[in-house]
Design a protein around this nucleic acid. Structure first.
Lengths: 194, 194
DNA sequence: CGATTCTTTGAAAACAGTCAATCTGTGTGG
DNA sequence: CCACACAGATTGACTGTTTTCAAAGAATCG
């Protein structure tokens, strides 16, 4: 079950982890299965786990004053899900994380995570590469959400995450892009004609 | 001249750095003065330096297909400026960074930065705290740019960075918020009446 | 000062959001 | 197996916000 993560770790770090070191990682994490619609994190609670998705799909979203859902991110195989701010600070989160499909996860608490970072140099390296990637991706998303029209946002989504279109319902993708489902539908039709 | 950074480092890490360790940091960095309107980074070139602003103000911006400037971030005393993606990957940047005021900087190349991270544990710790903060701030900015109206964006700016209003021209602040200068002006008037 | 840059204001146009109705597909229970 | 219910997608009409264009007014700098 951890095999998928092992492969992932090797790819990210451009290395091959040895059995002993990988053993430490397996010890730090726990496997967890989640049914569709089950919650990993509820708004107002403290985030306890960092989760790695081995199989399935999830979403992280917040709910604003008017009751509207805003999907912050999706997660699929090979992605991490958590509210790091809450996880580290122990402050209650403003996000919800739930499963959009049945999921197989690897989870670890903040302490377990710190422990494995100390024990495994490759895991540590991975964490930093991910931080950097995350920071670059966030930058791109800021610019897209700020400067792109609805059409450009959708084209950008298709370009960067073509699989999302088949995998997630349009209204969720619209929420992720920060546009209305109606606009999403119209723009999609528009692009189809081009 | 490095005194300001020393104070900053102590505050961020909640520690007091000793003279020997701080000496290493001074060795890794170089002081650099910049006149207003001078460029630290030009679009299409490779970013060579990570810069810490001791005094002054800068901006990082990109230029889109239609020739419009989009300010990605401002930097003032105690902030870092660079395109980390380009710095690490050696790929040409799509950003410009220039001085909005006369500046006093501390700069280091990627190699020097890696060296000082290895040599100074406190500097290393600082780097990680900053990564995390940056990631949280980026998240906030994504949600703001996606879900806020022009009025909410401006209020958010006033709340988080009240000094910016006196320090930077409105058209640049508008660009930073992703709204037109005209809308900025109108919304500002609107808020003033409340 | 004079020149440039920045800000404000007005009017029109473009874009996206909202509301409401209809359509489509899927899955469930009778 | 069919019928119904439900969630999601589409479409149209309307509304509201923001942009754009243009011009005038203020502020700043050499």
């Amino acid at each position: 079950m951890y095999q998928f993560f092992r492969q992932y770790l090797n790819t990210i770090t451009s290395s091959i982890i040895c059995d002993e070191e990988f053993q430490l990682i397996e010890e730090a994490f726990t496997l967890k299965a989640m049914k569709k619609k089950q919650f990993l994190l509820h708004e107002g609670t403290v985030c306890r786990y960092m989760a790695f998705i081995i199989k399935g799909a999830m979403r992280q979203y917040s709910i604003d004053d008017k009751g509207n859902e805003h999907i912050v991110r999706f997660g699929i195989e090979g992605w991490w899900m958590s509210d790091r701010e809450s996880l580290r600070s122990l402050k209650p989160t403003k996000y919800n994380i739930d499963a959009l499909e049945d999921c197989q996860l690897m989870i670890a608490t903040n302490d377990q995570l710190n422990w494995v970072k100390e024990q495994s140099p490759l895991f540590f390296k991975m964490a930093h590469i991910l931080d950097e990637r995350h920071s670059i991706a966030a930058q791109h998303r800021i610019e897209a959400s700020m400067n792109y029209t609805a059409e450009e946002k959708l084209k950008d989504l298709i370009k960067n995450y073509p699989d999302f279109l088949k995998r997630f319902p349009q209204n969720m993708l619209a929420s992720y892009l920060g546009i209305s489902p109606e606009t999403f539908s119209r723009v999609r039709k528009q692009i189809g004609r081009q």
